[in-house]
Write a protein that binds this DNA or RNA. Structure first.
Lengths: 202, 202
DNA sequence: GTCTATACCCTGATAGAC
DNA sequence: GTCTATCAGGGTATAGAC
């Protein structure tokens, strides 16, 4: 098992493993306490090292946050692309499945929910990140919604622009109630009820 | 103008004025930075006094937060009752008008948006407050929605329970996008688009 | 690459004068 | 009722050993 012949590579792998562990525990802490409330020492301890040990991998708390967001984006893009491909162009079904998937990872949802709220302040380190993310994200949805309207799958008495806003808003809004009472609010089911309102009645 | 004859009453009035000033600036700070990010000294300075001066009126930061929430509840209840009375039983119109009113007070909306996100953590001092608030609030909406369904104003192919969740979710979700791009997202107009989806088509 | 020790700042809260 | 001075605690980040 041990690779004594290639210590350099083993070292690099160990570094990578540490970074991943740190990012993972950072996600949990930021989700629970937000960027402002999370403590570096706690994140470090959960990753099996001390504060300074963590700071060897990420030069500051802000840097760590950015890496967390980047990592999450990578996963999210993968997930979305895959779901998009599976349900070719059926944007409403894609949205519904994304909400289903979200329901399996409350930690991540809480993370984004809290960071978005914090980052509305322009001084917040993730302010630019989230404004851009929302802007681009909405634009992407609107594009595909317009396609759905052209194909006759989605009702056309509401503009694609408005539908994009409504779709994102419902995703965000349901998350809040679901995070508060996960046992009571059936997020995915209720989201499908909403989605049905947007379908073109043939 | 000056009431030299009743120093006791003048004193009391001055105290009351101080408390109001403090609560007002606390609202702004909590809205901008959240409970965890807001600094007592800043709140005090914005209210025209020092940290200890503030703490004479509110024994701790948590106490101050609770008073802020109570104060907001008072105003909100007034507003809701008034709007309810004006549009007797037309719950959808009431909701739409509330969103319109919200659009005039971005500070308060940001305050609640951020505090709700923070308070999902069970250790947060406002956790109990917001879980209760959402629970009761939703229950109240559901009741009135059921009335609207019985009268034939609201579509009945979706349960009142689900409609209540959807209505609150859309309010919350639109707020996020609107807070990020106030100039671009026409919250009240788009909410009315949504509300129209819930009306019974006669 | 990770540790111990620590510097240094920030923040909520207290003590006591006025 | 508000101030100045100050404390105690907790936070990020650095220095330097191993």
């Amino acid at each position: 098992m041990s690779q004594t012949k290639t210590p350099r590579r083993t070292q690099a792998e160990r570094t990578r493993a540490s970074r991943e562990k740190i990012i993972h525990s950072a996600m949990e802490s930021f989700a629970q306490k937000g960027f402002r409330g999370a403590k570096m020492a706690d994140i470090a301890q959960a990753a099996g090292l001390t504060g300074p040990g963590l700071l060897h991998h990420f030069p500051s708390k802000t840097h760590l946050l950015m890496e967390v967001l980047k990592e999450r984006d990578r996963i999210h893009k993968e997930q979305t692309d895959e779901t998009l491909q599976k349900n070719n162009n059926d944007i409403l079904e894609v949205a519904a499945e994304l909400v289903e998937q979200n329901q399996a990872t409350p930690g991540i949802i809480q993370l984004f929910n809290l960071l978005v709220a914090e980052s509305i302040s322009p001084e917040h380190p993730a302010h630019g990140y989230f404004t851009k993310r929302y802007h681009n994200g909405r634009e992407a949805w609107v594009q595909i919604i317009a396609q759905g309207q052209a194909q006759g799958d989605i009702r056309s008495d509401i503009s694609a622009d408005d539908l994009g806003v409504l779709l994102l808003a419902m995703m965000d809004g349901l998350q809040v109630q679901w995070l508060m009472e996960p046992e009571k609010i059936e997020m995915a089911r209720i989201f499908r009820v909403f989605v049905n309102l947007l379908k073109n009645r043939r």
